[in-house]
Simulated scan of single mutants.
Amino acid sequence: MPEAASAQVATRATVGDSEFDRDTAVTLRTPGVYDIGLSAGWTIINAVNGGYLLAVLGRALADTLPHPDPFTISAHYLTASQPGPAVVRTETVRTGRTLSTGQASLLQYDDEGREVERIRVLASYGDLDTLPDDVRTAARPPALPPMEQCFGPEDGPAPVDGSSAITERLMLKLDPSTLGWALGQPSGKGEMRAWFGLADGRDADPFSLLLAVDALPPTAFEIGLTGWVPTVELTAHVRSRPAPGPLRVSITTRNLAGGFLEEDAEVWDSADRLVAQSRQLARVRLP
């Protein structure tokens, strides 16, 4: 972990007062129109991370809709977003007593000043605090070694400048059994597991869960592929407000075909509760 991040952990940022909160905050221009400067701090290979972008849109919809928390949000990634100014446009589709639904688009401008839509989402919001505390599940938390036996980006070779700025903002400790790709010996299994948090110590909330489902290295690496794996579509479900403490994230891929793969993610909190799930379709570059 960088020294700056270590210093931040000592004071522990709080929800609402952290780098993640500042970098996902949108400014209302007119009803349904928000401005934001997409931060370069959440980039991978110079493209803005999809989970960070989902959190930005999630924040705008939370301001638009009468309910506070994303329950389900589906995003289609149309073009690659770049750091810099962006506009989010939201629309309320329906409001009800327990759920409200809205849609949002994130747009930027190309070099000739033309508007380009980057992402379009449809989401349903509710209030997680009103849900009954009744869990009946066959799901089990991922079996991860203790955090001190796992490895983060700081344990590997120095990254290429500008290629992995997001890792400086994450507390990411990967299960050694899913790290064969980093040693040139991928297992051939589409699995990635890690302890996850924000580097400044901020506890998780529903919006950072939207980041968590898309913040680990691609499962394609452990299948033996390299390079960028851009998301085509991602649907995330937030199931519960997470307990304080580090999260555990497990991502699996069962099928790569035609240059596309799916990634199924589960996010578990420190109370052993499944707090978020997602599925995404991503494109891979075949040799």
Score class of each variant (00 low, 15 high):
Gln8Cys: 13
Ala10Arg: 12
Thr11Phe: 15
Thr11Lys: 15
Thr14Ala: 12
Thr14Met: 09
Gly16Ala: 10
Ala25Lys: 11
Thr27His: 14
Arg29Met: 09
Pro31Ser: 07
Gly32Lys: 01
Gly32Phe: 03
Ala40Tyr: 04
Ala40Phe: 03
Trp42Arg: 01
Thr43Ile: 02
Ile44Met: 14
Ala47Met: 08
Leu53Met: 08
Ala55Trp: 00
Arg59His: 04
Asp63Gly: 02
Asp63Pro: 00
Asp69Tyr: 11
Phe71Thr: 03
Ser74Leu: 02
Ser74Trp: 01
Gln82Tyr: 02
Pro83Tyr: 05
Pro83Gln: 06
Pro83Val: 01
Gly84Cys: 06
Thr90Cys: 04
Glu91Cys: 00
Arg94Ile: 00
Gly96His: 02
Arg97Phe: 01
Arg97Val: 01
Arg97Leu: 09
Thr98Ala: 15
Leu99Ile: 05
Ser100Lys: 00
Leu107Glu: 15
Val116Tyr: 00
Val116Gly: 00
Glu117Thr: 12
Arg118Pro: 07
Ile119Glu: 12
Asp127Ile: 01
Thr130Asn: 13
Asp133Met: 10
Val135Tyr: 13
Val135Ala: 11
Arg136Thr: 10
Thr137Pro: 12
Thr137Met: 08
Ala143Glu: 13
Met147His: 14
Gln149Arg: 15
Gly152Lys: 01
Ser163Leu: 09
Ile166His: 15
Leu172Val: 02
Lys173Cys: 08
Lys173Val: 01
Leu174Asn: 14
Asp175Ser: 09
Pro176Gly: 03
Ala182Gln: 04
Leu183Trp: 15
Pro186Thr: 03
Ser187Thr: 13
Lys189Met: 03
Lys189Thr: 02
Gly190Phe: 00
Met192Asp: 10
Arg193Lys: 13
Leu198Arg: 05
Ala204Gly: 11
Asp205Leu: 11
Asp205Gln: 09
Leu210Gln: 08
Ala212Ile: 05
Ala212Pro: 10
Asp214Ser: 10
Pro217Ile: 03
Pro217Ser: 08
Phe221Ser: 07
Ile223Tyr: 12
Ile223Thr: 12
Gly224Asp: 09
Leu225Phe: 14
Thr226Pro: 08
Thr226Phe: 09
Val229Asn: 15
Glu233Thr: 15
Thr235Val: 04
Ala236Lys: 03
Val238Gln: 06
Val238Trp: 06
Arg239Gln: 13
Arg241Met: 05
Ala243Glu: 13
Ala243Ile: 07
Gly245Thr: 10
Ser250Asp: 13
Ile251Asn: 07
Thr253Lys: 05
Gly258Asp: 06
Gly258Pro: 11
Gly259Met: 08
Val267Met: 06
Asp269Val: 08
Ser270Pro: 12
Ala271Lys: 10
Ala271Arg: 12
Arg273Pro: 13
Arg273Asn: 09
Ala276Asn: 11
Gln277Ser: 15
Ser278Asp: 05
Arg279Thr: 11
Arg285Ser: 14
